[in-house]
């Protein structure tokens, strides 16, 4: 009987989490973390989602840093809207057409949209083709849609090799 071994990336991630949780880098904890995360990955292998193949690891780093800066800028923007007078608010629901098919990437994109400039993702259509977002400042819906598609969707599709529809 052969055990099918888990993929190395989730094991590495779980080990890193274990080390951060215990706040140490000692050999014993590294070994214990490796054993625990291997067992967890074997037990949970039916629930884990397969990641699409990573094509540009460097691009991923640039993307994460850009998202981080966008989060900070978004906070300043939202702070100004929240503290400013009420007539500056133009709330609205906008439907954004989606080109990504992969479930994991869709979830990532929805999270990034929720974290950045004045938008919250509120729903995904059943056939995964449209994302409903609520924007705090929806005075120019076209710019908002093209912003999301150019800044976040296109880089995600480039970084992970996945088929466009």
């Amino acid at each position: 009987m052969s055990i099918n071994w888990p993929k190395p990336f989730p094991v590495f991630l779980l080990t890193l989490m274990w080390l951060l949780l215990n706040n140490t880098l000692s050999l014993g904890h590294i070994l214990l973390g490796l054993i625990l995360s291997t067992v967890i990955c074997i037990l949970c292998r039916n629930f884990l989602v397969d990641l699409p193949p990573l094509k540009k690891p460097f691009g991923l780093c640039v993307f994460v840093i850009r998202v981080f800066f966008d989060v900070v800028l978004a906070n300043l923007h939202v702070a100004r809207l929240v503290l400013g007078p009420e007539k500056n608010l133009h709330p609205g629901f906008i439907e954004v057409p989606m080109c990504i098919k992969d479930e994991f990437l869709l979830a990532t994109l929805a999270c990034v949209v929720s974290l950045t400039p004045g938008t919250v993702s509120a729903g995904l259509s059943a056939d995964h083709t449209k994302l409903l977002i609520h924007a705090l400042d929806a005075s120019q819906p076209e710019t908002l849609i093209s912003d999301i598609k150019v800044r976040y969707e296109a880089p995600l599709m480039e970084i992970f090799r996945c088929s466009a529809t």
Binding site: V71, L89, V120, A122, L136
Partner: peptide, 16 residues
């Protein structure tokens, strides 16, 4: 003024 606008404040500001 309404729920969906209120959703923006906490989700962004509190994370940062």
């Amino acid at each position: 003024p309404d729920f969906f606008m209120r959703l923006h404040g906490p989700t962004k500001a509190t994370t940062l």
